[in-house]
Design a protein around this nucleic acid. Structure first.
Lengths: 218, 218
DNA sequence: GTCTATATTGTGATAGAC
DNA sequence: GTCTATCACAATATAGAC
């Protein structure tokens, strides 16, 4: 697991800034930004806490850097699919796959990002902006505009019940993301361990598209 | 807004312990437990911060009291409906109404509770226990058992596609709760202000049952 | 029960040697 | 770039007067 640097010295792995970011990511996500301690991040990164300030100046900046990275890890994929020119049924199926796959690999990210956003609403701009280079309203508008047209066409063809594009998208995201945000609660109430939860989500991955498309039938 | 106590003295309102709890609730919910400051709570309650310790001993205990109260405010209603002997379609409709009504009055509670649970998984027991007097697995089992039987009957009658009760319940909760947990994000991407968000949720309240039941049709 | 100190520790941040 | 030492202050908690 330990990569060698270009010199032969016992340099842990990767460059330091990256290691700090990784450590900060881990700590912020599991403990929340407010609950995180610079000391703990330093320890997890295997460096002295003064180094965190050398690279990132302050806890606020470090947390911002981590937040942006986390957002970039999740958003572009979904937005890409939703804004693509795939037919609507394919979009639904693809979003479910992409979202559940990505979140299964990082089950705590949704909780972290949503929590972060409620306590720092101004970071919404940061989030969407860093992921797409656009303003949140514009991203929303682009995505919704395309889907609205697809809905209208399908409704005219008698293949779909009418539904507002906003509601459709929120429904789709809810079904994919919520189980991760509520993971500890669901694990307790459904008597699942980690593997059980993973199986539960794999089953969702295969069943959700049919469920969702059935809801749209006329 | 200021209720009079039984005496005529200028006692703010209610008894002090209650005022502290209310203030703590407000601060913990908007700022997160880790981000909350006892000083701020004291100020919001209009008392000295030493009083918080007089009544609740420590920040941890106070936060626990607030958490339990918050859970009791949300859980019993849903669990009650899901565990009732209403027919399945009525359960769905009723959960949507109850849940969206309750959460509309306290939009930040879901985020608070879910966030709290990911950072203190041991509180899951506290949460469900205080709300129902049972263990989480047992509540889950009771609710799911009843719904499983309803699903089986409906499937045999050819009125429903088969679906695991766990998936059904998670789908239902997801569709109701997620929009509140993701409120800041949705408001930004859908260009909604608070009133706009409220309207969006009222629309959901009326459309969600049909959407959900359509998904269950054979 | 409620307040005014005050003790005590935690925590982000900087200075300066290497 | 990285470390050790340390500052300054924030935050929880307690003692003791009223």
């Amino acid at each position: 697991m330990v990569k060698q640097g270009s010199q032969r010295r016992p340099v842990p792995d990767g460059d330091t800034e990256q290691r700090i970011l990784d450590a900060a990511h881990a700590v912020f996500v599991r403990t929340g930004t407010a609950g995180a301690r610079m000391q703990e991040i330093a320890k997890e990164a295997g460096v002295n806490s003064a180094l965190l300030h050398y690279y990132f100046r302050s806890k606020a900046r470090l947390s911002e850097a981590v937040f942006i990275r986390a957002a970039q890890q999740l958003l572009p994929a979904v937005i890409g699919v939703l804004a693509s020119d795939l037919p609507l049924e394919k979009k639904v199926a693809r979003v479910v796959e992409v979202e559940i796959d990505n979140l299964s690999a990082a089950p705590f990210l949704p909780g972290y990002i949503l929590s972060e956003l409620t306590h720092h609403p101004e970071r919404v701009r940061l989030l969407v902006g860093s992921a797409t280079g656009k303003r949140p309203e514009d991203v929303g508008g682009d995505v919704l505009g395309g889907i609205r047209r697809q809905i209208e066409a399908a409704v005219r063809a008698g293949k779909m019940r009418p539904i507002a594009p906003e509601q459709l998208v929120v429904n789709l995201l809810a079904l994919c993301v919520f189980p991760f945000a509520a993971r500890p609660l669901l694990m307790a109430m459904l008597s699942l361990d980690e593997r059980g939860f993973a199986r539960f989500m794999m089953r969702r991955r295969s069943e959700l598209p049919a469920f969702f498309l059935a809801a749209l039938r006329p």
